[in-house]
Structures are given as structure tokens and as C-alpha cells.
Design a protein around this nucleic acid. Structure first.
Lengths: 215, 215, 215, 215
DNA sequence: GATGAATGAGGATTCATTCAT
DNA sequence: GATGAATGAATCCTCATTCAT
């Protein structure tokens, strides 16, 4: 990896584990194996780095979500795809997702606005699908907005505990969460594993992470 | 409120919104309406304050959970109680719970050990109930551990968005989450609202927060 | 001991071991078993305390020195008495003497002037006796001023290492130092132990310290 | 002098005159003509600086002492050399030596152990030589350990009063102290000035201080 | 007498960032 | 590209001292 990449990777890892405010420029430099002055050849301010990480991560998730839900068919299939994608993204790049989920408050008002707008746009995908499912009788929930938040938090939580080195394979993880989500929405249908696999391939391509047979 | 209470309240609020590392001693002092030197009459180090907040919050949750699950009957009732309690606790004191959930990494190794031990003990309550429910055929899940984590994250997420000033009343919130959890566990039984009310009363008493008719 | 005495004793002990600047008001309070606010009933400022310790210690030494040298006869006897007294004083109250010797620089200019004046007055006693001894042919030294300083440092050093709990008795210590001093002054006469005993009695009386048979 | 050198020189001077605890980081910065933040480019903590000063000073003294005593012949010559070296070192770098002598108590337990070990090693040189001299009948003292301490304190005291700008030249100072020491040890032999000159040359070389004809 | 509460000033140290080389 | 040197501002925390009770 080149220096710029090492800086970004270091930032993701440290921001995710120690928090933005808990991470010093010297920590970043050490992890990236550069002097702290050299860091500034590859980044603007520390906050710029955070903003870049957050927006690209959210944009990537948003793009992939639009892709997989467009490909899928009915609300059930689209929700399955959305859950699978979300869970896989959080399992495959827990650093970025934890930063996105936890460090919004560290942003300046201006940057926060842009990040929150992206996040809202993404959540709207969920809202629309759930709404559609309720509309066509596939989902049953008295409080769609509450349910949506509950499901999102449930899925995002994956980044807090899942390890690719554990026994649970990525597809199994995604399948299980899709099942949980559909049950919670009152539609305990069996999950089509082909769909999950398709999501996994999208993730592999978009996140540029070799998803090995192992998981 | 006295000075000591104001310090603690300020810490909870600021740690929850800006993070431990994002909160300066001067922020705390300003919020508590004290000079920064005076703060140190009421606390040890900043970390001591964090530890105190975390351990009392966790201990309170743990005690209340043991109480409500002991009172309840079968695994279904116990899980309902546990979910309701957890959700209510997170809705009623979102500050404390967010601190507990987000700032574990800010602790020194020693303190982290103690806090994580408490958290593990609490999670064991969930694990045992889910296990019992699966054992007696009430719950259906292929991966109890994964499901447990999913449900915990789902319920904890309440602290991130619920506002007591919104239209959703506390009991409705708890009831809805209990329903979601039971569905996810493959047992879409109707939720007994008496049980939820009992939990709400426990919360009102233990957290010493007047749960008004309004929510 | 009463509170005022405990404060003074604590100050002597702590100033001697940790230095004036290394000793905090809280250290003093803890050692004196008082609250730090209560300290101020028994003292002025921290520096006042230091000044009081230094001046009384120096004044006491000066008075005793004048007494024992007036009682003694020829320069040899007077020097023996002076050495014995100095050594005994440093052995018997190492705290005070270390403070006097080491903390002069911690004083404000004003107080320093007064303390240094006392110290100079005391050193003049030494100077005069050495001068007399050289004059009457009892002492031989080419540089009386250098020799005087050398002997004073040698004798003051006792406060850095002597312990009354060790095997060396006070009189033996004083006798040995008197011998060293006289040798250094070119007059290796045997030391009269009666004289040393008289000095010891003066020390016992003036310093109000029970000199037990043990040492 | 470069910045690092200025920091060290400032520390020696200030620690020597105001004590470790009496010297603030701002004092150091001002004396070194750097901002207090820049100080930390050239040092670790304030204590690290103290430890470095102490250990290098002691090590230098120890090395030089081993050199001059190895070169010298009988115990009398070796003691003369040791006294001369000690006195010259204290006269030539009074700052370092006063720090070594006075600030041991300011060290943390760990560092203190290392420093005291060095000091003990140095004192052992004195102990062995005195012991040898007593063994071969050159020295007469009933209490070698007490005498050793007395002589060491006497010689170290030089750093408290000697000024190279006074009338007393370095060689005269060292010669006089060697004479005092030998007298105190019961061997009032004349002091070989060649030996003292050799010590002075060692000091000039090891301490890298140009010993001018003037003193 | 005694003390808990209070504080402005200062303690050592680290911060993110710049810039000349 | 890369970095050692540099710094003003900020970090957490302790200082000696006062005062109302």
C-alpha cells in the first residue's frame, strides 16, 4: 500500500477503536509509519480526514444499496438485499462503519450537515421499502419508523462484535440477519441464499475486498 | 441539585454527546457551573468519573434485570421483561447508557476489566433466558449467540434516537420492542401490557425518575 | 504534642526529605493530621513556616555555640567544643539542620538576608577561633578560610547520614569529628571526652531532647 | 551551543540553584531560549532530564576516578588523587555535582535505585583505598566508614562555595584539600603537586573544560 | 478551633499544525 | 517527498490560599 493509503487505513483503524478525539496526529503517524509532518502531505486537517472517511463510506454504502435493491424484486426481496448488504458492509469494513456510526458528533456543524444528509438519504431507502412492504401486506408493523430504527441499529451492531476470524461465515451471518429482520417485520419467510450471495459479490466488488471461500 | 450532582450530570450529558475524549475538563466545569479547580473537590480524575458513571449504570441495570426476570414466569415472560426493562432504561437515561455503550475503549485496562465483567454478567442473563426458551421450544433460532447480540444492539439503539418529548409513550415503545424481539425469536405472541407496566414501575423506582402520565 | 507542634514537626520532616518546593500544603496537613485549611490556624504562609524553622534552628545553634565556646579555654578546647556541638546538633536534629543547609535558596530575598546574616554570624565564631589558634601556633593551615569551609561542610554532612539507631553513639561521633578537625588543623591532640560530654549536656538541654544512655 | 545543549545547560544551572522542584518548565524554557513546547523536542520528561544529568555526571566521575587511582601507586598517592579529582570535579562543574548531591530525593524510586547504585560504586572506591591505607599502616582512623563520609562531605562541599573567579587557583584548592584529607587520616605527608597536576589534566580532558592558566 | 467549599494561578505535558530545509 | 524544529493553544490536574460556616 502507498503512503496515502496507509494514512487512511491508519485513520480508519484508530478512529474506530480509540475515537476521533482519542486519536492523536502522532498516533496516526506512527501507525502509518510516517513522521507526523509528512502526514500533512497526504491529508488536510485531521477533520478533513474524518470527513473523507465518512462520506466515502456512506456514499459507497448508498450506491451499493441502490444497486442491490434495484436488482431485487418485491419488497421482501429488496429488504432482504438491504439487510444483507448492510450487515456484510459492517462485517467487512467494521472500521469505516464504526467511524460513521460513532463519530458524527466530532464533526463541525458544516461537515456534519453533509454527512447526516447522506445518512438520511440511505435511511430513506429503508423507509421506502418498509413502507412498500406494509402497503402490499407483506410486512406487519404498527410503527414502521420505530421498526426501521430498531432494525438499522440491530444490523449496524454487527460492526461491534463480528470477526471474520470466527466460525461464522459471512453468508451465514447475512442470512441470519435477513431472517431476523423479516421475522420482526411479521414475514417469517425462508431466505433465498442466492440473493445473499449476490449481495456478497456486490460487496466484494464495491469494497474491493477479496471475499475468500473461508468466509 | 448540589454541586456533586451537577458534576455528575454534566459528565453524563457531555460524555454522551461529545465523547469522553471530546469533553474537556473546562467543558465539565462550565456545564456544572463551577471552576475547573473546584471540580476536583467532587471527583477524582476524569477517568474516575467515567468509571463511576459506567459502573453504577451497569450495576443498576443488572440489579433491576435480576429483579424483573425473577418475578416473571416462563422464558417468554422473562424475555419480555428483559427487553422492556432494557429499552426503558435506555429511553429514560440515554446519557448513561450511551456512555456505557460507547466509551468502554476510553477506559484504562484495569477499569475496563471491571466494567466489561459487569457487562458480561448482564449479557449472561440474556443468554440464559434465550437458552431456556430454545430448550423448551418457545424460541426458535439457529444461532442463539448471534441472535442475542442482534437483539441487544437493537434495544440499546433506543438511546440513540428516542426522545421522551416525542409522540411515542414509554410503554408503547417498550411494548413494541418486546414484540419485535419475540418475533425475531420465532414466537410472535401478543405482549402482555401488564408486564410492561410492571417494568416501567421498576424503572421509575430504581432510576428515581418520575414517569409521568405523559409518557 | 499539640497541633502547632505537629505542624512544625511535619514541616521539618517533610522539608528535610522532600525539600520546600517538593512539599505541598496537603502533605503537611496529612502528616500533621489536620485538614489543610486548619493548618492556617497554626501558621502564616508556607514560607513563614520555613523562615521560622530556619531562624530558630540557627539562633539556637548560635546561642549554644557562644555558650560552649565561652566556657572553654584555649583555641584548641574551643574548637573541639564547637565541632562537638555542631556535630551533635546535626546528629540530634538532622531535619532542622538539613533544612537550614539546603533550603536557603527557597527563601524570598528579604528572608534570605536575615537567615544568611545569622549563618554568617555563626561562621564568624569558627573563623575567630581558627584565627586565634593559628595566631598562637596551635593550628597550622595556609588557608584558614578554605579550611574553615571544609570543616564546616564536613561536620554538617553528619545530618545526611548519621542515624541514632545505628551502633555509633553520639559522644563517639562527636569525639571522632573533633579528632578529625584537629588533625586537619595540624594539631593531632587527644580529645578530652569530658568536654564532649559537656557539649552533649548543653545539646540535651537546649534542644530539649532526652539524650539517653543508649546513644 | 545548539538547542539540546542549551536545554541541558539550563537544567543543570537551574536545578543546582533552585532545586528540581523549584524549577519550572517555563524557567527552563526561558533560560534555554525556547518555547516550553519546544523543550520537549530535546528531552523526555523533566525527570528524565534530571536522571540524565545525574547519571552522566556520576558515570564521568566514576570513570575518571578509576583512571586516576589506577595510575597512582600506594594508598597515599591514590587517596591524594581521589581527593584532588573529587575536589576539581566539584569546583569545575559545581552545577552537576550539586544536582547529584542534593536532588536524589526528587527521583522516582526506580531512577533513584540506579543513581544510588552508581554513587555507591563510587564510594566503594574511597572505602577500598582507605581500607588499604589502614591495612598497610599509612592511615590511622578508628572508624574508617565515618571518616570516609566525613571526607566525602568535606570535599563535596567545594561545589557550594568555590568560585573560579576568586583568587584561589584550582591546583591550590585541590592540593589544600588533599593535605586536609591526609592529615585527617593521620598521615600529614607533603602533597606531590605533580600528581595534582595530572588530575587536573584528566579533569580538563574528561570534563572538556579548558583549564586556563588563570586558575 | 476546625473545615468543606471554592478558586486563580500555575504545574507538567501534549495538541494539531506550520515551515524552512 | 520527507522531516526536524518549532510553537500557541490546549490538555488534565495541583498549587497555596481564603472564607463562610
Amino acid at each position: 500500500m502507498n503512503s496515502a493509503g496507509r494514512v487512511r487505513a491508519a485513520a480508519v483503524e484508530l478512529f474506530a477503536t480509540k475515537g476521533f478525539h482519542g486519536t492523536g496526529i502522532r498516533d496516526l503517524a506512527q501507525r502509518a509509519e510516517l513522521s507526523s509532518a509528512t502526514l500533512y502531505h497526504y491529508m488536510g486537517t485531521k477533520e478533513d480526514l474524518l470527513v473523507e472517511i465518512m462520506t466515502t463510506a456512506l456514499q459507497r454504502l448508498l450506491d451499493a444499496a441502490e444497486q442491490v435493491t434495484t436488482e431485487a424484486g418485491d419488497p421482501v426481496a429488496r429488504l432482504r438485499a438491504l439487510v444483507a448488504l448492510h450487515v456484510l458492509a459492517h462485517a467487512v469494513s467494521p472500521g469505516e462503519t464504526r467511524v460513521v456510526d460513532n463519530e458524527v458528533d466530532a464533526l463541525s456543524a458544516d461537515a456534519r450537515g453533509r454527512v447526516v444528509a447522506l445518512r438520511d438519504e440511505y435511511e430513506q431507502l429503508w423507509a421506502r421499502i418498509i413502507e412498500d412492504g406494509v402497503g402490499c401486506g407483506a410486512f406487519h408493523t404498527e410503527r414502521p419508523a420505530v421498526t426501521r430504527r430498531a432494525l438499522l441499529e440491530m444490523c449496524s451492531g454487527v460492526a461491534r462484535w463480528y470477526s471474520p476470524r470466527g466460525p461464522l461465515r459471512l453468508e451465514e451471518l447475512a442470512t441470519h440477519y435477513a431472517e431476523l429482520a423479516l421475522r420482526a417485520l411479521g414475514n417469517p419467510a425462508a431466505v433465498d441464499t442466492d440473493e445473499v450471495r449476490r449481495c456478497r459479490e456486490v460487496v466484494a466488488r464495491v469494497w474491493d475486498i477479496p471475499v475468500r471461500a473461508g468466509n
